[in-house]
Simulated assay, not measured.
Amino acid sequence: MSDLELRLATCTYQEFTPNMGTPVRTTAGAPRFPLSYALAGHARLITPTRDLLKIKSRDAYEWGYRRLLNGNTLDNIQRELFAIAGAFDLDTPLVLLCFDRLDRLTPPDDWCHRSMFAAWWTERTGVEVPELGGHRKKSPTSFPAPPAPPTLF
């Protein structure tokens, strides 16, 4: 799609701080509380539908959400995310935001669409999407460096 690699991370609206990257809404509803930062856009192609939000079973939700992502296609999702990132520094990750604080959830309910999206994205692109909120995989300042361009002979 592009020679540039799209850098993504995930977090909650509540835990996000501007030093983490460029904030992007991925929720069906907008935050009902004031944010101390401006959102860069709304990633509609990865936003769960209101019908999906009614599903309480993780397996059923994940099946439906992956069906939505696959139907929207990786290429279209990348295009949408690149369009949002285009007005900002591409070296700064887009931080995909939702409401669920993973550190406050207990198994088997310690999941949300952003963690499912991160797994789906990694499976398709090979690029990890770090979680910056509770249950952090990587610190907000330690993003993997973009891969070196291939050497042509």
Score class of each variant (00 low, 15 high):
Phe153His: 08
Pro93Met: 06
Pro48Leu: 03
Pro150Leu: 15
Leu39Ala: 01
Ile84Asp: 06
Leu102Cys: 02
Arg25Ala: 08
Met116Ser: 10
Ile84Ala: 11
Tyr13Cys: 09
Thr26Asn: 07
Ala85Ser: 07
Ala119Phe: 11
Leu94Ser: 01
Ser57Tyr: 06
Arg66Gln: 10
Thr49His: 08
Leu81Asp: 06
Leu90Cys: 12
Asn72Arg: 11
Glu128Asp: 11
Met1Arg: 12
Gln78Ser: 12
Leu4Phe: 13
Thr141Ser: 14
Gln14Met: 12
Leu68Gln: 02
Arg7Cys: 07
Trp120Lys: 01
Glu5Thr: 13
Cys11Pro: 00
Gly126Arg: 00
Arg25Leu: 13
Glu5Pro: 08
Pro107Ile: 00
Ala148Tyr: 07
Ala9Gly: 13
Gly134Met: 03
Lys137Glu: 15
Phe143Cys: 05
Thr125Pro: 03
Met20Asn: 00
Phe117Asp: 00
Leu4Thr: 11
Trp63Ala: 15
Arg104Val: 06
Ala83Thr: 08
Asn70Gln: 12
Val24Ser: 05
Arg79Asn: 11
Ala118His: 01
Ala85Pro: 02
Leu96Cys: 03
Thr106Tyr: 11
Thr92Ile: 01
Pro18Glu: 01
Trp121Met: 08
Pro144His: 05
Ile84Arg: 09
Leu74Pro: 00
Phe82Ala: 09
His42Trp: 15
His135Thr: 11
Pro23Thr: 03
Thr141Glu: 07
Gly133Cys: 04
Arg44Gln: 14
Gly133Leu: 02
Asp89His: 12
His42Ala: 14
Thr17Met: 14
Glu123Ile: 07
Asp110Lys: 12
Asp100Val: 13
Leu53Thr: 00
Pro146Gln: 02
Pro146Val: 09
Ala118Cys: 03
Leu90Pro: 05
Asp110Thr: 05
Phe33Val: 09
Leu45Gln: 10
Thr26Asp: 03
Ser57Asp: 14
Leu68Lys: 02
Arg25Met: 09
Pro130Lys: 07
Gln14Ile: 15
Tyr65Glu: 00
Lys138Val: 10
Asp3Trp: 12
Leu74Cys: 04
Pro34Asp: 14
Leu96Asp: 02
Thr122Cys: 14
Leu96Trp: 01
Ala40Asp: 08
Arg32His: 14
Cys112Val: 07
Leu90Gly: 07
Gly41Ser: 10
Ile55Gln: 08
Val24His: 02
Ile77Asp: 02
Ala145Thr: 03
Arg79Cys: 08
Ala83Val: 11
Ala40Phe: 09
Arg25Glu: 01
Trp111Thr: 02
Phe16Cys: 01
Phe117Trp: 05
Glu80Arg: 10
Phe33Cys: 09
Pro107Lys: 04
Pro18Arg: 01
Thr26His: 09
Ser115Lys: 13
Thr22Glu: 05
Pro18Met: 04
Glu5Ser: 11
Met20Gly: 04
Asn76Leu: 10
Pro150Cys: 12
Thr22Ser: 07
Asn70Ile: 08
Met20Arg: 05
Lys54Thr: 06
Ala40Pro: 02
Thr106Gly: 04
Glu128Gly: 07
Thr122Met: 13
Asn76Gln: 11
Leu53Trp: 10
Leu45Thr: 07
Leu81Ala: 06
Ser57Ala: 15
Gly86Val: 06
Cys98Trp: 05
His135Ala: 13
Ala40Thr: 02
Val129Met: 00
Trp111Val: 04
Ile84His: 11
Glu62Asn: 11
Ser142Pro: 04
Thr122Gln: 15
Thr49Lys: 05
Ser115Met: 13
Glu80Tyr: 12
Leu4Ile: 11
Pro108Tyr: 00
Leu94Tyr: 05
Ala28Thr: 04
Ile46Lys: 02
Leu97Ile: 01
Leu52Arg: 06
